[in-house]
Design a protein around this nucleic acid. Structure first.
Lengths: 124, 124
DNA sequence: ACTCGACTTGGACATTATCCAGAGTGGCGG
DNA sequence: CCGCCACTCTGGATAATGTCCAAGTCGAGT
């Protein structure tokens, strides 16, 4: 546990939002100016391997990192401003996939992304 | 409808797989050598706007384009080799999102990505 | 204090996507 | 048939994101 990794962990823990790798880097630089992008990417990759954070691919421009990896949840994305909210649907989508639709895959996870327009953008 | 756009449409229609923009470009070049990347991107963007093809963000490396945009379906992705299959689950995930979890959004679409390991990779 | 290994750094590089200025093309009125 | 206009395409530059590598740095153990 080095100073650099602690800073990355603090950035993710401080705000429970969904940051891009670049945003994590910028915030890390604010706390530790000499930290490099490579270290941020390395550390994020390790945190993902450890299961401490999740990668989220809601848009294709950049990965986002979700520090709320321990409680299963899905995401609600505004199509206009890109805002992301965590949501907790009632059903279990894994159960909705019958064996006949699994093609022999061993299915281990499911990601659900709801898309819509947030109240702010709807008002504008 | 120019020659270039016809070629892009043919590429997408010829194989019902999930091509990246770059794969579309390579296949388009095979049919029409002087087509440029910009034109492929433009045309793909127009097709998406028209609702003829869907963008799929199963990994973060590159967008993929799904020509099967007219029948709602979801995707089953192999975590190892990246193979993508279309699947048709039984339930309707939109119904699983109660109003209390919508935060005022007008939710219009849902994407579901199942992740697992395909039979080929499981055998290897 | 020395050595070794792990970590970090900074920059180069790769990939994917977008932008832009200029050239090309086709239709249409004259 | 000619020239004009709107639109499209091209090729290259550029941006955004992510990865890799060689060398430097730091700390633990001896």
């Amino acid at each position: 546990m080095t100073a650099q990794r602690r800073v990355v962990a603090e950035v993710l823990d401080g705000d429970h939002v969904h940051l891009t790798a670049d945003e994590v880097h910028m915030r890390a630089v604010a706390k530790l100016p000499e930290i490099s992008r490579a270290t941020v990417y390395n550390t994020l990759g390790e945190l993902v391997s450890l299961g401490e954070v999740m990668e989220v691919a809601t848009d294709k421009r950049a990965k986002r990192y979700d520090p709320n990896a321990h409680r299963p949840h899905h995401h609600l994305v505004c199509a206009q401003c890109g805002a992301i909210r965590d949501v907790h649907p009632s059903g279990n989508p894994l159960a909705d996939l019958p064996d006949s639709e699994r093609f022999g895959f061993s299915v281990s996870a499911v990601e659900v992304t709801y898309r819509g327009v947030c109240p702010n953008c709807a008002a504008a």
